[in-house]
Design a protein around this nucleic acid. Structure first.
Lengths: 123, 123
DNA sequence: CAGTTTCCTGGCCATCCGGCCAGTTTCGCA
DNA sequence: TGCGAAACTGGCCGGATGGCCAGGAAACTG
C-alpha cells in the first residue's frame, strides 16, 4: 500500500444533536485519510444520526397491517394487494383504514410517507 | 478534560461499496473515542454511502413538478395542491401526470416512494 | 365460558384519481 | 421571427379510494 494516490475520504455530517455533531467533528477531523466535507461538497459517505424523538415506540401495527403497508409502499392498488395477500378488496380497505388511523394519515400516500419517516418501513 | 466518563461514540457502517467500507472501517476503528458497532448493536450514528448507480443524473423535473411532488409527499390531495400553488386542479393533474411518467410510477404513492428512493425529495 | 383482539367479508356511496381529448399563454433560444 | 418547452386550463369518464354501515370466524386470555 502506501500509495499517496489514495484520496482522502470525504465525510459529511448530518447529526441532529449538536453535542454529538461537535464531538464527531472533532474526532473525525483529526483522522488521517479522512476529511470532513465543506458546505455543499459531495461526500463519499455521510454520518447520520436522526433525532429519535420522532419515534417514541413502534406504532402498534398488526402483522396484516404491515403486509398491506409494505405493498402500499410498492405503489400497489387495493385490488393488487387483495390479489397478493389472497384476501378481498374489502378487507384490504379495512386494513388501509386502520393504517390511516394509526399513522395519522389522510391518504395512502401520506401513510407511506409517515411510515417511512418513522422507520416502520424501509423505502 | 481527560474524564474517562466520556463514553465512546458507537458508529454503525452502512456502505454499499465494499472497498470504501473496508477503508472506513480501518480508519475509524483506530480512532480513540470511537468504536464501531457490533452486529445488531444500537449505534449513536450511522455512516451511510448508498450506491449512486441508482441515480445516474437527477431526473429532469421542472420547478413546478418539484412543487407538486413536495406537496404530494405531504399527503396533499390534488385539490389541496391546487389551492396551495394557486392553480387549477386540472393543472395539478397535468403535473402529476408528468411526474408519474418521469418517475415511472403507477400512482401518486408510487411516485413519492420512487422520488424518495432516488433522493429527489426528502421524506 | 365470556370477552377481547385480529382478521376477514359484504354493500353503499361521495369523492378522488388518472388518462384522454382539446386549447391558451409566456418564455427563451435558434 | 418562428419554434419548442413549460405552464396553465377545460371537459369527460372509468376506475380507485376511503368512510360508513353491518356482520362472522378463529385465537388467545381471564
Amino acid at each position: 500500500m502506501s500509495e499517496d494516490t489514495t484520496p482522502e475520504i470525504v465525510l459529511a455530517l448530518e447529526i441532529d444533536d449538536p453535542a454529538l455533531a461537535d464531538r464527531l467533528a472533532t474526532l473525525l477531523g483529526s483522522v488521517a485519510g479522512l476529511r470532513l466535507a465543506a458546505a455543499g461538497e459531495t461526500a463519499a459517505a455521510t454520518v447520520v444520526a436522526r433525532d429519535p424523538r420522532v419515534m417514541p415506540e413502534d406504532i402498534a401495527l398488526t402483522q396484516r397491517e404491515l403486509d398491506v403497508l409494505a405493498l402500499m409502499a410498492e405503489g400497489a392498488s387495493n385490488k393488487m394487494i387483495a390479489r397478493r395477500l389472497d384476501i378481498s378488496v374489502h378487507t384490504v380497505k379495512f386494513h388501509v383504514g386502520s393504517l390511516l388511523d394509526k399513522l395519522d394519515a389522510t391518504g395512502r400516500t401520506d401513510a407511506v410517507a409517515h411510515a417511512a419517516r418513522r422507520g416502520v418501513i424501509e423505502l
